[in-house]
Amino acid sequence: MNIKSVEDYFPGMDIIDSDIEERIETIYNEVKNTEVDKASISASLQAESISYQDFYNILKIDPNEYLEIMAEKAYDKRIRYFGNNVSLFSPIYIANYCENSCKYCGFRAQSDIKRAKLTYEEIEAEMNALAATGIEDVLILTGESEKFSSIEYIAKSCEIAKKYFRVVGIEIYPTNIDDYKKLRQAGADFVTVFQESYNKKYYDFYHPAGHKRSFSYRINTQERALMGGMRGVGFGTLFGLGDPIEEAFKLGVHASLIQKKYPQAEIAISLPRIRPTHGADETLIFENI
C-alpha cells in the first residue's frame, strides 16, 4: 500500500477514538504566539501549579539568566515527590533489524550495519548476567521490524526477563491493543515510544517510508499500550529535528494529557543521547526542509 501522508494508517493498524493528537496541536497554537517577557516568566516560576502557558513561558527562558533558579526549583520538586531515591535500569537490545527509512538513524533499513537477533538461550544468558550486577529493572529494545522481531518473540523475551527483574520495560515498534495485552500477560510493565518529532512537516520529511510514516498511529501508541493494560508509558522526542521549544512543549503536553486521561498510569520522559551514528543519511540538510 502506498502511504502518501503522515495522516494515513497502514492496513491492520488500530484506529482508536482519541482526541489527544488534536488537543496537543490546539494547546500549542494557543500559546505559541503569546509575548513572553520577564514579568510573565517570573510569574510562571513562582506558580505552585503551572498551566500550559506557564510551561511554555519557562521553556522560553534564557538559561544564562535563570539557570540557578530553575535548578533550585527542580531540586525542590525532586525532593518533594521522589526524595533522594535514584532508580537504575539497563537497556538490552535483542535485535536490530528495522524496516523504516528514518533519515537520521543508523538502524534504518538502508544502513549497512551488521544485523543480529538473539536466540532465547542468548537472551537468558544476557538477562542472567545483567541481573547478577544488581540491576532490578530492564528495558528490552528491538529495531522496528515485526518480521524479525515478532510479538511472540518479544513476549517470550519478556517472560525470560520477568524471571530476573522487578520491572520489565519494552521499547519496540508501535503495535495494536491486543498485542500490548499479550506483552503485558508475558511480563511487560512499561512501554516507551519516541515520537521523534511532533511537527508533522518535519516528521513527514524525516520518515519517508515504513510503518513509522504514520504520524497519527505513532502518537497514539501510549494510549493503546494503556488500553492494553500496561502499568506505565514513556515519551520522548529527538531534539534537533525541529524547533526544540515546540518539541519540548508538545512532549510535555502529550504526557500531561495522557496522565489526566489515565490517572492510574505511571509516566516517564526520556531524553535522547547525542552521539554520532553510522548508517544515517549523510546528505540530510536541515535547512532544506
Rank of each mutant, 00 (worst) to 15 (best):
I27G: 08
A47N: 13
D37P: 04
S44V: 05
E65Y: 15
I24D: 02
L45I: 04
F55Y: 13
D62K: 00
V36E: 03
V36G: 02
E68P: 00
S44T: 09
Y52N: 05
D54F: 08
S51F: 09
S44A: 11
N64V: 01
E65H: 07
S51T: 06
E30L: 05
K73D: 00
E25G: 11
S51M: 10
L45W: 08
T26F: 13
E48A: 03
F55N: 07
I27C: 12
S51E: 08
S40R: 11
A43D: 10
E35Y: 14
S40Q: 14
P63K: 03
V31C: 13
I58W: 00
I24N: 07
T26G: 09
E25M: 13
L59Q: 06
D54A: 06
N33M: 12
L67Y: 04
N57R: 03
Q53K: 09
K38L: 13
L59K: 04
Y56F: 15
A74M: 09
E48Y: 14
Y56K: 13
S49H: 15
E30R: 12
S42P: 03
A43C: 13
Y52S: 12
L59D: 03
I61R: 00
L45Y: 08
I61D: 01
N64P: 02
N57A: 05
I24E: 03
D37S: 06
K32Y: 07
P63R: 04
T26D: 11
I50T: 12
E65K: 05
S49R: 10
V36Q: 08
A71L: 06
S40M: 15
L67F: 05
T26P: 00
V36H: 08
E48G: 08
E68C: 01
N29G: 14
Q46G: 06
E25H: 13
I24K: 04
V36N: 02
E72P: 00
I50Y: 10
